[in-house]
């Protein structure tokens, strides 16, 4: 492989990774904007999307049906999480920190349950298309990478359309801009919080389903993905959806090049280094600023 092809290869794997980080980071940012808290259990929904659909597929469901059902289950779990863990705590005037710690706790519980159900070994989900890997300018592209990129593009477009063009999307933005005024026109922030946890649960599961054919699926696959998406969100300025997308891709590309040019030891450490650097140098992220703050 020529050096140029090699670099292209890193870029392709960076874009693939970046798509996944971006998707999860969008989920984090949307939830944060609406509720003021980070759902740090979101990574576990990625795991669930992958493992549940693999289990359903193994049980004989067609692949598409297995996917749909897994996404629905994750969405329902997101809703249950909001109603049983977040909502009551909020009613009891829990601080933001308490609420975030609750999400970490829910994450640990889901991970523990996944470990009990699925054990530690990796599961395989077949790629969505049978097409063999092909080369572009000397770099190998696996078709599943294109599926992942495609999902990211479709989700971003759908979210953009939702927030920009629909009445409900505008109501959500209104609630983010001015919670009191939103309540005065009849927008119920608690209902939006429920919707946010439900929708981002589904989004996380979708990300897990798309990435599973590339990475294998294990009970703890979502943990690191969630953490890195969190870094991507911070990189993008926490409240900013376009920022989260850019942050996700930047982190993915950085990681792919770091691993390729320096060594695989960098894979997980790099994200943490990036987070520390952002916090030190530009805590408002590369775009935008903390609008909600503490």
């Amino acid at each position: 492989m020529s050096p140029e092809s090699q670099l292209l290869q890193y870029l392709i794997s960076g874009l693939t990774l970046g798509s996944i980080y971006a998707l999860i980071a969008i989920g984090l940012v949307v939830t944060f904007n609406i509720t003021g808290i980070f759902n740090l259990a979101l990574g576990e929904f990625v795991t669930l999307g992958a493992l549940v659909s693999i289990a359903l597929y193994a049980a004989g469901l067609p692949l598409i049906a297995a996917f749909a059902l897994a996404v629905l289950i994750a969405a329902a779990l997101g809703a249950v999480m909001e109603r049983t863990a977040i909502h009551p705590a909020r009613k009891a005037n829990a601080t933001i920190l308490t609420l975030v710690i609750i999400t970490i706790g829910v994450g640990i519980a889901i991970r523990g349950a996944s470990l009990l159900i699925w054990g530690t070994h990796p599961y395989i989900l077949p790629p969505f298309s049978e097409h063999a890997p092909f080369t572009v300018a000397g770099a190998v592209v696996i078709p599943q990478s294109l599926w992942v990129l495609g999902l990211a593009v479709v989700c971003v477009a759908a979210l953009f359309a939702f927030f920009e063009f629909t009445y409900l999307g505008k109501a959500v933005r209104a609630c983010v801009m001015n919670r009191t005024a939103a309540r005065l026109v009849g927008i119920n922030p608690q209902r939006l919080s429920l919707a946010a946890f439900t929708a981002t649960g589904a989004l996380g599961a979708l990300a897990g389903i798309f990435v599973a054919p590339i990475t294998f699926a294990t009970y703890d696959m979502g943990f690191m993905l969630g953490l890195k998406a969190f870094v991507a969100a911070i990189l993008g300025g926490v409240t900013n959806v376009p920022g989260a997308i850019i942050g996700g891709f930047l982190l993915g590309i950085l990681e792919a090049f770091g691993v390729g040019l320096v060594g695989s030891g960098l894979k997980d450490g790099l994200a943490m280094i990036v987070m520390i650097l952002v916090m030190l140098i530009r805590p408002t992220g590369i775009l935008g600023a903390f609008r909600r703050g503490a």
Binding site: A171, A174, M177, A182
Partner: peptide, 29 residues
Amino acid sequence: VHAGISLVPEHRQLFAGLTVRDNLILGAY
């Protein structure tokens, strides 16, 4: 507000980043 009381709050409290039209239609939420 559903019961028929609507408050125009102190300091306006508009949805600052949304258009005039969107602010208005959200009033009917």
